[in-house]
Nucleic acid binder design. Structure first.
Lengths: 341, 341
DNA sequence: CTGAAAGCGCTTACAG
DNA sequence: CTGAAAGCGCTTACAG
């Protein structure tokens, strides 16, 4: 077929104007039933559907939202995206879904491309590499609505969907302490990722409050790479005075830690108790099963898009941007539960 | 800010025509350097970027490809998508990424929306539920290029990126037989998923060729749900004559089988040897480590988009659509290796 | 080197 | 109930 069929083709064939075809296609009440039926019949026959680019251009609306996440292969992000998607469909919006693979460069081009008229707003969780937020500030300046979830930029004042990372880490650390750990290490993410830093401060607070020593050598930073988690764990357990508890910033890293500990024949939880974050399905599958802090990912996704659509549909609202903080839940499993303390 | 800045705003402010602004923005050689610089300077100052909807509309090109997969939370799909993405970026194309959540309805609306001028072609892996292929045939009729990977529609003759599922399953089954299994069950996917059926026939062929009985009660069908895998495994091991080998259509299901077997205190691989498909990272993490058939996901993604771009850029080519079949590799791990047969 | 005009495929006052 | 015209924000022959 030479070209896609357009409204003009239909109009010519039916000997009516394009305006009438346009109205008939959208079932506008003023169109005579006969005319409408003829248009619809031919449209069906010719597989005609209005070109969205044209429609969006004239309406200056796309009803589309850009979603930018670090990596869809992370269970956490895939799961939040599912929540975003459900609500988007329910409210008649479409999603333009992109991942940055944790690269600043990708984040930049994704934001720029999508902001060229393609989307009405953004939901973003920033990449590990991102330290320059100019591309996001530009959105603000242009008046394009933006919502952060999980990984945000402190200096950008927009609605955010977060969990109480400090409190969650505090609770997780306390849990290890209650189960008899005294020398607790923290396996952190990259030091520029806010989420990791917040969890670290919750950990530190819990240690202090329990009168336990804070040993700087017990806080180690990695990215979200399995092999690096293994290496860092090995380093920790080659210390003269190795830890007897481990708070890990994510399940992904905790699994690395478990693999390393198994190889070293260090028993979990007897020799070292572990708790981590995200409660991915793998927590119930790995041996020993892994204690982890669950986040309400689906609800977080729904909230993120709700806040965004609010901005889109009430642009004049002068309210201070809301920061929604969701409750977490510590799921206790074998890796931290010591039967005999 | 009231509205996004357009080419007209720049033209008016600089007292030149929109045509000149348009040319300057694209660095066309005929524009005087002075003029160009003035335009670029103001564009930068005002954060102007050409509206993509308008550009695409007039060019009748979007340089964008629709990617429709069942679920991005499946490691296999996320990984193929990464391959697609790399190559897309390298060739100057963008991706419109959507997931169907295995729902036919979503697949339908995704295909329809994107085909309204938004993309120049599709890469699709069909959902579990899909049995009606009309929406995809429509793409063909409209001359919109289409490439399948992994899960295809038999009756639609377009380029496909597959692995030799029959051969891979044959090899996997033979491997179990060589390790002493005689009564081997097959934990299949939904009976309308081609990939599952192909693997099943490879399994059956290997059984026959080895002179082993094919017992219909040992072939059970599930979807890709963990709990169902557990249930099906339990059913298999409540048979009077339970299996001593298990070929599982995917790692996701195999993990369910392992969980069920652990609970029943059935030893792996001593009592039952297991091999599955996809070689997800979890295979090296679960206890025992899981033997699995690896597919070159990244290369498959690159091939899929290469075939698609070929179609887009050489629409007149009359070649018969290619079906690229990639080699798999059986990764042998603890779940199938019996030291003493 | 630059501009006026036509056009991409639609929608929407306005008129009749 | 329908059509002609203008316009969404661009690009591109064509003319000068």
């Amino acid at each position: 077929m030479a070209h896609q069929v357009t409204i003009k083709d239909l109009a010519r064939h039916l000997n009516i104007s394009v305006a009438t075809v346009s109205r008939a296609m959208r079932d506008m009440p003023e169109i005579k039933a006969e005319t409408r039926d003829a248009v619809l019949k031919l449209a069906k026959e010719w597989d005609y559907q209005p070109n969205l680019l044209a429609t969006n251009l004239v309406k200056s609306r796309t009803k589309t939202i850009g979603v930018i996440v670090p990596d869809l292969a992370y269970h956490f992000f895939a799961s939040v995206v599912k929540g975003i998607e459900e609500e988007a469909i329910a409210r008649g919006y479409s999603l333009l879904l992109t991942q940055t693979s944790e690269l600043y460069e990708r984040e930049l081009t994704n934001v720029q491309n999508l902001s060229r008229g393609q989307v009405e707003g953004f939901i973003v969780s920033i990449s590990q590499e991102t330290t320059d937020f100019e591309h996001l500030k530009r959105l603000q300046r242009k008046g394009i609505p933006l919502v952060f979830f999980d990984r945000d930029a402190d200096e950008i004042d927009v609605p955010k969907v977060m969990v109480d990372n400090v409190g969650a880490a505090y609770e997780a650390t306390k849990h290890l302490i209650e189960n008899g750990s005294k020398r607790i290490a923290f396996l952190a993410g990259p030091s520029n990722v806010t989420v990791s830093n917040l969890r670290q401060s919750g950990y530190e607070q819990a240690m202090k409050d329990s009168g336990l020593a804070l040993d700087e050598t017990l806080v180690v930073h990695g990215n979200y790479n399995l092999q690096q988690a293994i290496d860092l764990t090995n380093e920790l357990f080659e210390l003269k005075n190795p830890p007897d508890g481990l708070v890990v910033v994510s399940d992904r890293l905790a699994v690395g830690a478990i693999v390393a500990l198994r190889k070293r024949n260090i028993r979990i939880p007897e020799d070292v108790a572990i708790v981590s974050f995200n409660d991915e399905p793998i927590c119930s599958i790995v041996t020993p099963t892994l204690s982890s802090v669950a986040q309400p990912t689906f609800e977080m996704g729904k909230m993120a898009i709700t806040l965004l659509i609010n901005q889109i549909e009430n642009p004049e609202s002068l309210d201070k941007p809301e920061v929604k903080v969701f409750k977490t839940e510590l799921k206790m499993r074998e890796s931290s539960l010591r039967v005999n303390k």
